[in-house]
């Protein structure tokens, strides 16, 4: 299981890019924390989520 935004999910085996697409995120508006660090955007396509990973997808909304 992969913990994403505090919830256990079945995302193991998916790349970060695949997970973001399947969960409906707009890649232009997110920052992805994976196991304590922000994952560079260029690594989304090659980074495969594994059992035990912990991630947070920060999805920005407008206003300021």
């Amino acid at each position: 299981m992969v913990k994403i935004n505090g919830e256990l999910t079945e995302a193991a085996g998916k790349t970060v890019e695949e997970y973001l697409s399947s969960a409906g995120y707009d890649k232009k508006r997110v920052a992805v924390e994976l196991n304590g660090d922000i994952l560079p955007k260029c690594a989304y396509a090659d980074t495969v989520l594994k059992d035990g990973d912990s991630a947070e997808v920060v999805s920005f909304v407008g206003g300021g």
Binding site: D37, I38, P40, F60
Partner: peptide, 28 residues
């Protein structure tokens, strides 16, 4: 104010200037 611009700044600073602290806002 724009969500895309927020994401660009956070991702760029975290990737290219990892020694810096960055504070952001989303949702107010």
């Amino acid at each position: 104010d724009e969500a895309d611009s927020k994401a660009v700044l956070i991702n760029t600073v975290c990737e290219k200037l990892p020694e810096k602290y960055i504070i952001s806002s989303s949702g107010m």
